[in-house]
């Protein structure tokens, strides 16, 4: 039976968080039950106030083989970080 239930990825937004973060995966027969299983498995200790579930098969992921071409070219582009501005002294909370 276990082989017939699809896998779901679970995303939880914490009480103070602004976005949902991936917390793990689980098996469930459909999306509604996945949501409930997620509640039981991943919010047992009040970890969150909102849950998303996504069928794992619906996720398109980058491949480890593509890591070099995907990510390495960004390594030498320091000018993309906002570190070249002079911040006036009386600007707070920046």
């Amino acid at each position: 039976m276990s082989s017939t239930w699809p896998l779901w990825e679970v995303f939880v937004r914490t009480r103070r968080g602004l976005s949902h973060g991936h917390v793990g995966s689980l098996h469930a027969p459909d999306a509604e039950m996945a949501l409930r299983n997620a509640r039981d498995l991943y919010t047992r200790r009040q970890e969150g106030v909102s849950i998303w579930v996504v069928a794992s098969e619906d996720i398109t992921a980058s491949s480890p083989d593509e890591r070099d071409s995907f990510f390495d070219p960004a390594a030498d582009k320091v000018y993309r970080h906002p570190t070249f501005y002079d911040v006036p002294e009386d600007v707070e909370y920046l």
Partner: peptide
């Protein structure tokens, strides 16, 4: 239970 997820649910 049929699945570990359901073990958890009924345990809860």
């Amino acid at each position: 239970a049929p699945q570990i997820e359901e073990d958890m649910a009924l345990g809860n």
